[in-house]
């Protein structure tokens, strides 16, 4: 199998995740897109670990997973707070800046 397979796949997922971050209005959706990005990165790490034979990539992938979990937790807690305060989590409605 070619190494580029994994890497291209990860790149595709990454790009899609970026699109999601930019384009999505719902905060939760943005978080989900961020998850996509993170997963793409993890895939990259594992692929490189496979390529080089060092196990460190997988270790890092595990770390990424753990951090992602923590991040989602906190993020969703924040989203909840915002929702409580503003009754909306549409990101463009949360901006109070004029112009």
């Amino acid at each position: 199998m070619l190494a580029v397979n994994f890497l291209l796949l990860a790149a595709a997922l990454f790009a899609i995740g970026v699109y999601g971050v930019i384009a999505r209005r719902n905060a939760v959706m943005v978080l989900m897109s961020i998850e996509l990005i993170l997963n793409a990165v993890s895939l990259n790490l594992v692929a490189f670990s496979l390529m080089t034979g060092a196990i460190d990539g997988q270790v890092f992938a595990l770390y990424v997973i753990a951090i992602a979990a923590a991040e989602v937790g906190v993020g969703l807690a924040m989203v909840l707070m915002i929702y409580r305060n503003r009754k909306t989590i549409a990101l463009d409605e949360l901006s109070e800046m004029k112009g």
Binding site: V21, I22, R24, V30, L91, D92, S95, M97, G99
Partner: peptide, 17 residues
């Protein structure tokens, strides 16, 4: 340059990426 400070996260994200 004002529009870059719109407060819209999507835009910020777009700019960033």
């Amino acid at each position: 340059l004002q529009p870059t400070q719109s407060g819209k996260i999507g835009q910020y994200g777009a700019l960033l990426f």
